[in-house]
Amino acid sequence: MNAIAEDITRMTGAMTADDLAPLRDFSGTVGDFTSPQARMVCRNVDVHYGDKHAIKNVSLDIGRNEVVAMIGPSGCGKSTFLRCLNRMNDTVPGCRVRGRITLDGQDIYDKQQDVVPLRAQVGMVFQKPNPFPKSIYENVAYGPRIHGLTNDKIELDALVETSLRKAGLWDEVKDRLQQPGTGLSGGQQQRLCIARTIAVSPEVILMDEPCSALDPIATARIEELIDELREQYSIAIVTHSMQQAARVSQRTAYFHLGDLVEVGETSQIFTNPSHKLTEDYITGRFG
């Protein structure tokens, strides 16, 4: 083993394989998981897929005007957790969610809660751009139509335009709104999906690795867009790119094997994380 690796191991505290695998001495999340202006509040959330305990007692807030990044090695549960926030896990057979998740004080897993309005409030953008095989206009108009948000064509036109403007796509597509959305480039498609999500005026936007299928320039445009959207929405983003988490988020949450190991200000997580696992993951010592 390299001398510097030894030194760093000594400085950050000795780790053995035992410390990692089941996290036996896991004694709760390091750092403050609350947010002063919390919009979504998750407390003691457990998720099981059949026998698999995918999320273990996770508490995390998503605040107003902030981007919360969720990072962690594959299979750490970050995407599962994200999909709990708009109940996209409902369709997965054998998936059980326990604990309390509220949106503006309202329990989203309450029996009275209908998923249709919930998903209008908590939008989601996926890993692979998935525009519907319809025109650009129809893609954006889809949500407003099914929720009956507009009264006439003029209102709908206006809503489509503002949504596309907010997504930074208007100037690129205003002359070809009737062309299929699938004909756009990957980055444009992803921004179209964001516009589609914005069109139903959500409060929270969930993003599941939104840039993993995009080239660096398209990625930069999406990151810029995320920063702009923060003015109006709460954003939770799952990403495999630690640099991306560092660039776009205000707070970062590190997941490991279903545990939320550490939450903190992004600047602190990336310069001086408190937990050994976070440090190892961020510096590329495993994962």
Binding site: N86, V115, R119, G123, F126, G143
Partner: peptide, 19 residues
């Protein structure tokens, strides 16, 4: 992903199917 996209916008199963 088409279904996911539609569900994530709050569409029901039949709306997703039809539209």
């Amino acid at each position: 992903s088409m279904r996911d996209g539609s569900y994530a916008l709050g569409a029901t199963q039949s709306e997703t199917m039809r539209r």
